[in-house]
C-alpha cells in the first residue's frame, strides 16, 4: 500500500511540475495547488504509515498506546496546509491583478518589471 502511495506522490509531482511549466497563468496556479498536495503527502508518507489509529490518547490512559499514527508529521502538514492556502490565495489575487494591469495571459509576456 505504501508503494501505491509513493506512486501517487510521484504522479502528483509530475502533474504539478508539468502545469507549472505552462505559459498560461491559470495553469501555473493549478500546478502550484497540485504540487502543494504532493509535498504534504510526501511528508506524510515519509514517516511511518499506520492505518486507522489516530494519535489521540484514549480516556483513562496517560500516554498513547502503540500502534498509533506518528503525530509529528501530521502537525507539520497541518501547518503546511494552512500556509499553502495562504500562498494559493495570494498568488491567485496577484496574478489576477497582474493580468488586469498588463492584459497579459502569457507568462512569457511578463518578463520585464518596468513595462506595461
Amino acid at each position: 500500500m505504501d508503494t501505491l502511495l509513493a506512486v501517487l506522490i510521484g504522479a502528483l509531482y509530475a502533474a504539478g511540475l508539468y502545469l507549472m511549466m505552462r505559459r498560461s497563468i491559470v495553469r501555473l496556479i493549478f500546478g502550484l495547488v497540485i504540487l502543494g498536495h504532493a509535498v504534504n503527502l510526501l511528508i506524510f508518507a515519509a514517516g511511518r504509515l499506520t492505518r486507522a489509529h489516530p494519535p489521540i490518547v484514549p480516556e483513562g490512559a496517560a500516554a498513547l498506546v502503540p500502534p498509533y499514527a506518528d503525530p509529528l508529521p501530521q502537525a507539520l502538514i497541518l501547518t503546511a496546509i494552512v500556509i499553502g492556502f495562504g500562498l494559493q490565495a495570494f498568488a491567485l489575487v496577484l496574478f489576477r491583478q497582474a493580468h488586469r494591469v498588463s492584459g497579459a495571459e502569457d507568462l512569457d509576456a511578463m518578463r520585464t518589471t518596468d513595462s506595461h
Binding site: F44, L49, T50, R51, P54, Q74, L78
Partner: peptide, 9 residues
C-alpha cells in the same frame, strides 16, 4: 489522511 489515522488533517 482520514484513512491513515489523521482526522485533524
Amino acid at each position: 489522511y482520514l484513512s491513515y489515522g489523521a482526522p485533524d488533517l
